[in-house]
Nucleic acid binder design. Structure first.
Lengths: 249, 249
DNA sequence: GTCAGTCCGTGGTCTGACCACTCTAGACAA
DNA sequence: TTGTCTAGAGTGGTCAGACCACGGACTGAC
């Protein structure tokens, strides 16, 4: 029938691959938009000239990639692009590597430092207000490590969002799951004393001020300083922990 | 039989989802390593208590994610983590966004600037030699835009590799396809005159020297300058093109 | 010793059937 | 008239069994 594209130029893709490519290209070209409903599996299989199991393999793969939302009894719907799949892919990709948690922090610094530079040029009044709001939350939740951590993340996320760069934003979202794991894993090694947390707030405030003054160099400098302080704290605390124990376990 | 994990805590995943999760977790935990061969589809289906089509849906999804390499007549093998899938996912994720090509350049700058800082601290002698080698290739291929472009990419890639950060490396590889598209698309707008290309070589050399001297701030500064010059060139050329035409088409 | 043909195990595909879920239109009762 | 309930249709989810296509290994002839 339709026989799909059939690029026999060099490959010999299986039926499921052909169907997969068929839909992926239509997704990429925008021919299929988020929210669109696909035909039923039986009709689609007939239209594309493959059997239902083969069609299902392709559909399932698209769903796993987050491109499709297949609901029992309802049908298959095109899903809007989602960074969560990207995050999973990154996690899987980095899984066999050693020291990923440390490493992912480097990626975080990379993204944020560029984001804040862009934000200095592009941030709207609303963006700045949003960042200021997270700063307020941060101050209000000094005694609660849980919401405090959330506010901390919100602050940095708001900066990336203010960069108005979807690429930076997506990548940042992608590394977020790993960032969280890193954060949780490190929380054991991080003590939270009033003096330190207040210093933390001050560091955030300095970053925000430089951003509000639209000074890219200064903003990046203060952001880097903030990250380095976090590094130092963790290091010192690690040392004191081992010294306190007298011996490593 | 085995009945798999069966996390009925909150979800009600389909059989294929259960099988998918089953293997993904085993991949993440390292229980399944790259190169391992899976049992045959019939045996696996029996062992996991699902039908073969369902098992195939899961296997196919894993293959689409680049975790499995399924070969006709051979069997299914666990594949080593590959950034190409990450790149595809990113492409799909960014597809609906406007101005991705510009945007991806920002991500590139972000990664490279952090990478070169790390490289100043971590780069080995071999790394530096590798970068120097790409610089030589760059010089030798001044008259050939094709290999010259390749050498340019190789230079920047070598810097990221010298950062010894797998996270930065994977992300850089992930954006590479989009970077290439951006590069090709912009090549139309970029003129290559001897004066300019020699300036380009000089900029690369300056970056390399700062790196070899292990000066993070200076290295990043020069790298940023290099990127900005590229930006300026493109802008100027765009303007002159439109002026030369007298009218935009 | 080398090469060709055959066989077997593997993934690839198909058919047709049945089950489970969701929605809705129609029947029924208040 | 209105609200609720139920039966049906349409949809995805699953299954069984069969056959085809490909790749490798074994075996035989040369």
């Amino acid at each position: 029938m339709l026989d799909i594209v059939r690029q026999d130029t060099e490959e010999n893709p299986s039926g499921a691959d052909r169907v997969f490519t068929f839909f992926r290209d239509r997704l990429l070209s925008g021919e299929l938009k988020a929210g669109d409903r696909l035909l039923g599996e039986r009709e689609l299989a007939l239209a594309l000239g493959v059997s239902r199991p083969v069609l299902r393999e392709a559909l399932r793969s698209l769903a796993m990639l987050g491109l499709l939302d297949i609901r029992h009894g309802r049908g298959a719907y095109v899903r809007s692009a989602d960074a969560s799949v990207l995050g999973q892919a990154l996690t899987l990709c980095l899984a066999p590597e050693p020291n990923i948690l440390d490493d992912v922090l480097q990626a975080r610094i990379a993204i944020e430092c560029q984001a804040i530079r862009l934000a200095c040029l592009r941030a709207s009044e609303r963006d700045l207000q949003a960042i200021a709001a997270t700063l307020d939350t941060l101050v209000d939740s000094l005694d609660d490590p849980e919401t405090g951590g959330g506010a901390d993340y919100a602050f940095h996320l708001a900066i990336v969002r203010a960069s108005a760069s979807s690429a930076l934003m997506k990548i940042y979202e992608a590394i977020s799951p790993l960032l969280m794991r890193s954060h949780v894993e490190r929380r054991r090694d991080t003590f939270r004393e009033p003096a330190i947390t207040s210093g933390l707030v001050e560091a955030h405030r300095q970053v925000f001020l430089a951003l509000a003054q639209r000074d890219p160099d200064e903003a990046e400098r203060r952001l880097r300083a903030h990250f380095e302080i976090g590094d130092d704290l963790r290091r010192k605390n690690l040392i004191s922990t081992y010294q306190g124990q007298g011996q490593a376990s």
